[in-house]
């Protein structure tokens, strides 16, 4: 509080001027007090806001950390799933290809077995079973096409005495040579030569008439002669010879397959009876 000299003594108008000033001072004091309160409130509010922001910030940081961890976990999971997916794709493809390979492997085995079942194990040419199947198919086909079907039946002369003289191993070797020579003489892909049993061979010649079949038989006879397989106990020659019966027909519904076979067989035995080492293609009644 300022001490002013009592100026009313000097200036009678002073009290009149002083009163508004005092009032103004009072107002200013109040304003000052209000501002102090306002300032205090604002500071307090600021602190609160700051505390709140700090807390929110902490929460956000924690949340970010959680999310970063989650993202990392998800990335690991994604990586794992991607790898598993890739593994599964490879395994599925492996399985599919493996299945196909097994199919092929079984099929080849089956094919081999079927083939083996139709092959004579000694001579490695078709056996009687395969011949019978093929004969049936060709019989039907030639019947439909009205084309001739010929059969050559061939038997090694005096084969029993060959075995007795040279032994069974030599007999087997002889059979292999004859089988090979017999097959060599076939010219058409549809022709088939087979071991019919023992020392007997047979050839089926589709679309071949009797004359042409006889030419094939003559070729067979010659090529077997040319082998010059020694046979000192043969009553026919010094080398291995064969007898053959040739038969031909155009299959029709009134004829049976066995008829043609029988005809060739009859002619073969006619060749044997007539002295062996020959071809018979007609039936003498």
């Amino acid at each position: 509080m300022h001490n002013f000299p009592n100026s009313t003594d000097t200036n009678p108008e002073l009290p009149a001027h002083l009163a508004p000033l005092l009032q103004e001072i009072e107002c200013l004091r109040k304003e000052n007090a209000d501002l102090r309160i306002a300032l205090s409130n604002t500071a307090e509010h600021g602190d609160l806001i700051e505390a709140e922001l700090y807390e929110t910030n902490c929460k956000l940081k924690a949340e970010i950390a959680v999310r970063v961890r989650a993202e990392s976990t998800l990335n690991t999971l994604l990586e794992m799933l991607t790898r598993q997916k890739s593994d599964l794709e490879i395994i599925v493809q492996t399985l599919m290809e493996h299945g196909d390979l097994l199919d092929t492997q079984w099929y080849e085995k089956l094919h081999e077995v079927v083939l083996q079942a139709g092959i004579d194990s000694l001579t490695q040419i078709p056996n009687r079973r395969r011949f019978d199947d093929y004969f049936e198919r060709q019989w039907q086909q030639m019947r439909q096409e009205r084309l001739p079907l010929s059969i050559i039946m061939c038997d090694i002369d005096a084969f029993k005495s060959y075995n007795d003289t040279y032994g069974h191993l030599a007999g087997d070797a002889c059979l292999k040579q004859i089988a090979e020579a017999f097959c060599k003489c076939l010219q058409h892909p549809s022709d088939l030569a087979a071991r019919y049993g023992g020392e007997e061979f047979i050839a089926l010649l589709p679309q071949t008439d009797l004359d042409k079949a006889v030419i094939v038989a003559q070729r067979m006879q010659q090529i077997i002669r040319d082998l010059q397989i020694p046979h000192r106990s043969s009553p026919v020659a010094q080398t291995v010879t064969v007898s053959m019966g040739v038969a031909c027909t155009i299959p029709d519904p009134t004829l049976s397959m066995s008829h043609l076979l029988q005809q060739a067989d009859v002619r073969l035995y006619a060749a044997k009876r007539q002295g062996k080492d020959r071809i018979v293609s007609t039936t003498i009644v």
């Binding site: 490879i90 493809q93 290809e97 493996h98």
Partner: peptide, 14 residues
């Protein structure tokens, strides 16, 4: 052995 030639190579992919 046919299956081994192909399927073993596929396992190498894994």
């Amino acid at each position: 052995v046919l299956w081994q030639v192909r399927s073993l190579k596929n396992l190498k992919r894994l």
